[in-house]
Amino acid sequence: MSIKEIQDEIVDEFSMFDDSTSEKLEYLVDLGKSLPALDEKYKTDDYLIRGCQSDLWLNAELLDGKVVFTASAAAMIPRGIIALLIRVFSNQTPKDILDDDTAKFIERAKLNNFFQMTRSNGLEKMIKQIKLYALAFNVKKK
């Protein structure tokens, strides 16, 4: 599935909720609960995303030309947010990740509309780190 197709699915899922923040946050918590456990060796400062409201670790590997992300977070909402982003970007090529207009997806899904400023900053940091991993893998390929 392409990044755009996955994003469209997520936008549709979020449109089922009314504008109530609590329903959307509950959905994110459920996503966070479904996130597979991250190997403890990645729960170090090298994988920590700075600027998130809680500790959040993100790892990426390039397997068969596609980036595979794994992550964990100490708090459930950031865990849900990173689970959502992993759903979008994992198993995609570095080029496709870099070419994606993620800000447009965030706007379409109305993700920034219900986050406090600190969580919005964390979301931006998560996306930035995902794009940095993709950039590193894209440069390595050349």
Score class of each variant (00 low, 15 high):
residue 128 K to W: 05
residue 100 D to Y: 07
residue 94 P to W: 03
residue 73 A to I: 05
residue 68 V to H: 13
residue 74 A to M: 03
residue 126 M to S: 02
residue 103 A to D: 15
residue 93 T to L: 05
residue 119 R to T: 08
residue 111 L to W: 05
residue 55 D to F: 15
residue 98 L to A: 08
residue 61 E to N: 03
residue 79 R to T: 13
residue 130 I to N: 11
residue 89 F to N: 04
residue 84 L to S: 11
residue 61 E to C: 03
residue 55 D to R: 15
residue 69 F to P: 05
residue 113 N to P: 01
residue 135 L to G: 02
residue 84 L to T: 13
residue 63 L to W: 07
residue 86 I to R: 12
residue 126 M to V: 08
residue 135 L to T: 03
residue 116 Q to F: 02
residue 123 L to M: 12
residue 88 V to N: 03
residue 110 K to P: 04
residue 112 N to T: 09
residue 126 M to H: 02
residue 69 F to G: 00
residue 135 L to D: 05
residue 64 D to W: 08
residue 57 W to K: 10
residue 86 I to M: 14
residue 104 K to P: 00
residue 90 S to C: 12
residue 118 T to M: 11
residue 91 N to C: 12
residue 71 A to P: 13
residue 65 G to T: 14
residue 80 G to S: 05
residue 93 T to F: 11
residue 95 K to M: 09
residue 82 I to Q: 04
residue 130 I to A: 14
residue 107 E to P: 00
residue 75 A to R: 05
residue 128 K to G: 03
residue 129 Q to S: 08
residue 123 L to K: 08
residue 116 Q to S: 13
residue 62 L to V: 13
residue 99 D to V: 01
residue 129 Q to E: 14
residue 127 I to K: 02
residue 91 N to L: 14
residue 120 S to I: 02
residue 77 I to S: 04
residue 94 P to S: 01
residue 90 S to N: 10
residue 122 G to D: 06
residue 85 L to I: 09
residue 75 A to L: 02
residue 113 N to G: 06
residue 119 R to A: 10
residue 78 P to T: 09
residue 96 D to K: 15
residue 117 M to S: 14
residue 140 K to C: 00
residue 115 F to R: 00
residue 141 K to T: 03
residue 90 S to F: 09
residue 124 E to Y: 09
residue 131 K to T: 02
residue 133 Y to C: 12
residue 106 I to W: 04
residue 82 I to H: 05
residue 100 D to T: 13
residue 76 M to N: 13
residue 118 T to Y: 09
residue 86 I to T: 10
residue 97 I to W: 10
residue 76 M to G: 06
residue 79 R to H: 13
residue 72 S to N: 15
residue 61 E to I: 07
residue 74 A to P: 04
residue 63 L to I: 15
residue 132 L to F: 01
residue 73 A to P: 09
residue 78 P to I: 11
residue 106 I to K: 08
residue 103 A to M: 10
residue 97 I to G: 10
residue 107 E to A: 09
residue 131 K to H: 06
residue 78 P to E: 13
residue 79 R to I: 07
residue 123 L to N: 03
residue 81 I to Q: 07
residue 94 P to I: 03
residue 109 A to K: 11
residue 122 G to L: 08
residue 74 A to L: 03
residue 133 Y to V: 05
residue 75 A to M: 04
residue 91 N to V: 13
residue 61 E to V: 14
residue 127 I to V: 08
residue 132 L to T: 11
residue 128 K to S: 06
residue 138 N to L: 01
residue 106 I to L: 08
residue 99 D to E: 08
residue 88 V to C: 10
residue 66 K to P: 03
residue 86 I to H: 04
residue 87 R to G: 11
residue 110 K to C: 07
residue 80 G to Q: 05
residue 84 L to H: 06
residue 117 M to I: 06
residue 73 A to Y: 02
residue 141 K to V: 09
residue 129 Q to F: 02
residue 92 Q to N: 09
residue 138 N to H: 11
residue 94 P to R: 00
residue 92 Q to P: 01
residue 137 F to L: 09
residue 127 I to S: 05
residue 69 F to C: 00
residue 109 A to T: 05
residue 113 N to E: 14
residue 119 R to K: 06
residue 111 L to Q: 08
